[in-house]
């Protein structure tokens, strides 16, 4: 498999604080790849640097063979990287359907075609029956699925998911995991996710990157990561002897 996304020695500093310190990794095309680490490890900064919200201070980011470091967020999305936010940001005063239509209009000029595509996606995330409600009226789990549908509507090659499972009950987590596996398998969509819910990481990810204080301390399969001494020490926590 070739790399769809690759980061080479990417650094980001906020004044004195080093949020990302020469982080390098590659996400193969078609993979589900997870980034884990304790709070403040730099995970969301990493996402913002990839998604064009922040420009890296150093290093190269390559997507589908082209450099994207320093592009604006909208340009990154047009190249095929869609993202969700850790704190969901639906367009509150718009209907559920209109939220997804906005995403679908990125690759379509015709509003009717975008509406058809939005309705297909809403069927898939099981929000079709709520499509005429205001986004602000949805429950937290529904908002997460709405945001997912809106991101998918932009027809990405790479989907960045920022803690999509946080705050979900275990059954809802399992539904989300099943859904993500489905779209990964059916459409070959590459997924890069930040996740605290280890249950989801273990079930989904083919490879895992562990960040701690802005540094990549381990990278490998979920099983290997779970037994890495450095990871256990900094993040997962040791079993009491």
């Amino acid at each position: 498999m070739t790399a769809l996304l690759s980061l080479n020695a990417v650094s980001k500093r906020f004044r004195g604080l080093v949020a990302l310190d020469r982080v390098s990794f590659e996400v193969p095309e078609g993979a589900i790849y997870a980034v884990i680490g304790p709070n403040g490890a730099g995970k969301t900064t990493l996402f913002n640097v990839i998604a064009g919200v922040l420009a890296p201070d150093d290093g190269a980011i390559t997507f589908a063979g082209e450099p994207i470091a320093g592009s604006t967020a909208d340009a990154v999305c047009r190249r095929g990287i869609a993202r969700t936010f850790q704190l969901v940001r639906p367009f509150a005063a718009l209907s559920v359907e209109d939220n997804v239509i906005v995403g679908a209009l990125l690759r379509r000029r015709d509003v009717a075609a975008a509406r058809r595509r939005a309705q297909e996606l809403l069927q898939r995330v099981e929000l079709f029956d709520k499509r005429h409600q205001l986004a602000s009226a949805l429950t937290a789990p529904d908002r997460k699925r709405l945001e997912l549908a809106r991101a998918l509507a932009t027809e990405p090659r790479l989907l960045l998911l920022d803690e999509t499972m946080a705050g979900l009950r275990p059954t809802e987590t399992d539904r989300m995991v099943a859904f993500l596996k489905d779209i990964n398998r059916d459409s070959g969509l590459t997924i890069l996710l930040i996740e605290h819910v280890m249950r989801a990481v273990m079930a989904l990810a083919m490879r895992v990157l562990v960040l701690d204080h802005g540094t990549a301390i381990a990278e490998g399969t979920p099983a290997a990561i779970a037994h890495d001494p450095a990871v256990v020490q900094s993040y997962l926590g040791a079993e009491p002897a």
């Binding site: 967020a73 239509i101 906005v102 209009l105 975008a114």
Partner: peptide
Amino acid sequence: RMGYFWLAIREDEQAARAAGI
């Protein structure tokens, strides 16, 4: 199409940008 993009910008400019606008 432009109208939808305007509403998205009105509601949340950063989210609008993340949707490629």
